[in-house]
Amino acid sequence: MHISNGIIDGPVAAIFAAFALAALAFCVLRGRADLDDRLAPMAGLVAAFIFAVQMLNFPIFTAGVSGHLLGGALAALLVGPWVGALCVAVVLVVQALVFGDGGVAMLGLNITNMAILGTAAAYLLIALLLRVLPRTPAGLAVTAFVSALVSVVVASQGFVLQYWLGGTTDLGGNLGGLAGTMAVAHLLIGIGEGLITATTVVTVAKVRPDLVYALRALKPAVPAPAVPVAGGVR
């Protein structure tokens, strides 16, 4: 979902670059509380993993349309919302500066959609769902799937907002058409995102539940019967 150069005009791209920079600075400030000697290399791994999975475009519809993981929900679940947003931003910066993927001038727009909006939407849902759903692998899987799916659709609508502000083609008042096309395509991509996110997080939770930030940080709304469980899972 990387915006290429020329799609959004320069002034709007610059405004979003400033916004993205401010938001990332805020993430660094808040994220430092989470970021200790243990989380720093883990966060590097999460960024590397997201880079890898973003290369794996999967087909949607039957026609010639594909989609790939954005990673905001996955990162938020594994390393928390602040560091998670930074992980996705790191991936986007490497892609723009080294792989020619997503215009350098469009970086602020892309970071806003995928790193900031996507991760924020995901974590709001994660925080809600993990508190109300049972602390089981199924509960974690549903949380991951739903938050990932919604985060992709929210990110896609971030682009629609940007296109409304600074799109380089006059859609003749048909912004709703673009919004609808984007929403449907990203609903389908979101299903893929949800499956990948749920599979990955449930696997990590099985191997190393202590490495899943969301399980450490978010306590159930109703305290479970007082049986202390090592690692904090379920």
Binding site: M1, H2, I3, S4, M55, L56, N57, F58, P59, I60, G64, V65, S66, G67, H68, S156, F159, M182, A185, H186, L188, I189
Partner: peptide, 9 residues
């Protein structure tokens, strides 16, 4: 991986 344009493109 699929080489077709993604949802946005």
């Amino acid at each position: 991986a699929s080489s077709h344009p993604d949802g946005l493109d």
